[in-house]
Amino acid sequence: MTSIATEQAGEMLISKTERTESQVVRDIEHGETVGEPLMEDAKMSVRNTDVFYGDKQAIFGVDLDIGKNQVIAMIGPSGCGKSTFLRCLNRMNDTVEGCRVSGELTLDGSDIYSKKMDVVALRARIGMVFQKPNPFPKSIYDNVAYGPRLHGLASRRGELDEIVENSLRRASLWDEVKDRLHSPGTGLSGGQQQRLCIARAIAVSPEVILMDEPCSALDPIATARIEELIAELRENYTIAIVTHSMQQAARVSQRTAYFHLGHLVEVNDTEKVFTSPEHELTEAYITGRFG
């Protein structure tokens, strides 16, 4: 009796798995993004973008607009291309051997992959915060002052002090470090280091901030601080965040983009994605049915 029941259960399980996989294949072949990937008055626009690592295609024909002063969250299982996509947005993929990006990517209407584009200046306009806090082995002050110095944003020492203080304040770190600005940044706690990296990113007054799993190495309290910070930063910056935490995406973003095997499956208002997503794959992923 038991073995028959187990066998039946096994068969059921196999048929369900097959169904899911056939959905995936169908989706890849006829994959059109459901929801509302495009919008008016976008800060950044991505059209028909493919990304290859050598012969292997990692991103397939993505069309997406990133709205001004909005947080857009990119979610999806590991290897779905969300980080790759994020790195296209400030040409971080240029540094990856064999990586090729095609399509049209614009910031305020100007092509960021054009030959005339100064990549260093571009990355000042589109800052990035990484998964692991990566402060320079310098003092807290110099970490934040590095960008403004590089881009010649301050002509006097006083001006630089001001930029450093403002950036640290906006990153909610000032009160914790104001008495030890000249001690090494690496001596801070993980959460403080990540906020230092955010301060460093905003010191050069970027327009867009890209965040690649900024809280995955942090404890819940530090995570809450960063999330609070994202909500404040949204008033002045456009933010694109890649996260593995679905709850985090639900909390911090206004729009959510779901990637699957290199395809952009669904883009919708975050509220909609987390209460009644349009696409089956999105539903399956956010409810933990596979992924």
Binding site: F274, P277, I286, T287
Partner: peptide, 9 residues
């Protein structure tokens, strides 16, 4: 579980 989508509904 922090249910989402159909689970939450």
């Amino acid at each position: 579980r922090q249910p989402a989508a159909s689970d939450l509904r």
